Simulated assay, not measured.
Amino acid sequence: MKKLYGTGVALVTPFKKDERIDFNGLEKLVKYVLDNEVDYLVALGTTAETATLKKEEKQDIVECIQSANYKQLPLILGVGGNNTRDIVNQINSIKNLSVFYAILSVSPYYNRPSQEGIYEHFKSIVNCTEANIIVYNVPKRTGSNVMPDTVLRLANNFKNIIGIKEASGNVLQSYKIIEKKPKNFSVISGDDFITLPVLLGGGESVISVIAQGFPDKVSQMVSLARKNQVEKAFSIFYKIIKMIDLIYEEGNPTGIKTLLNIIGICNPYVRLPLLIGSPSLKKKMLNLLKQINS
């Protein structure tokens, strides 16, 4: 299986004011990132507000993304949760599983399992499904950290566990995995702030939120880093670093949807318990965009 390199985009789910899905906005977003040289797409991740979507809505969203994906880039599908048996059933109920490059599955949240519990969770998934799995580690959201030793055990013991989206925010944790991982296992940055250190340390790619707002810049930055053109890569990063800060100031995806609305891609609406971006956030983003584009 060909490894994933470069820039992946964690797509939002655009909504209309009445909270129905805005499929026109979603098509426009997919076309926008495809036109600006991203390398793969991620559907139904955290940034897509997946926790607030019904089963039928998820299916319609995936079909819309597949239809709009005119470049036929690899598509990763988010299927995760804290009920192991339910995750297995969900993955096995997917029609045409082979059209997805991999399933992105978050470490169980709220239950706060031990490292052995996390290991057994992913072992149960890969033993019961045909899918390739990318483990998603995001301790801020799950309440537990998938430690490097656990990641390496999974990587060495199951060929279908093909990578980790590492969003602990800890560069050293990524390096500990990169140092000892099998050759065909990918370390993917799940944090826009540390994409460059992860790539320069031997990681393969990023699943990015900010890449929706600046797909051309992030794609170029990642490409430069992979060619070891460090100074040029960091010059792009420093242009957008304040905006990365801003898109998380009022939560994700509130911030990125505010930015996407400003640049004319889709509406800023989110579903409760998230709230729409404040006028003050929008003003800060507008001022910063002028600086970035000047």
Rank of each mutant, 00 (worst) to 15 (best):
G25W: 05
L275A: 13
F234M: 13
E250H: 05
T46C: 04
Q115L: 07
L224P: 05
E49Q: 14
K283D: 09
L4N: 09
D86K: 08
I236S: 01
N83Q: 09
M147D: 13
I236C: 01
V171C: 00
L4F: 09
G255Y: 01
T47W: 00
I244D: 05
N293Y: 08
A233G: 10
G201N: 06
Y70P: 03
V151C: 07
V206Y: 04
L246N: 03
N170L: 00
S280K: 08
I188Q: 01
K28V: 09
Q212L: 03
E249D: 08
E130M: 15
P197A: 02
L272F: 10
F185Q: 02
E49P: 07
C266M: 07
K217A: 05
K31M: 09
K217R: 08
Q291Y: 07
Q115S: 13
I178H: 03
L288K: 12
P108L: 05
C128H: 15
F237M: 11
V171N: 00
V106M: 04
Y269C: 10
V206L: 03
K17D: 15
Y175S: 08
Y238Q: 12
V9P: 07
F122G: 11
K123H: 12
P74M: 06
N92I: 06
G277Y: 03
G78N: 02
T84G: 02
A51K: 11
E56R: 13
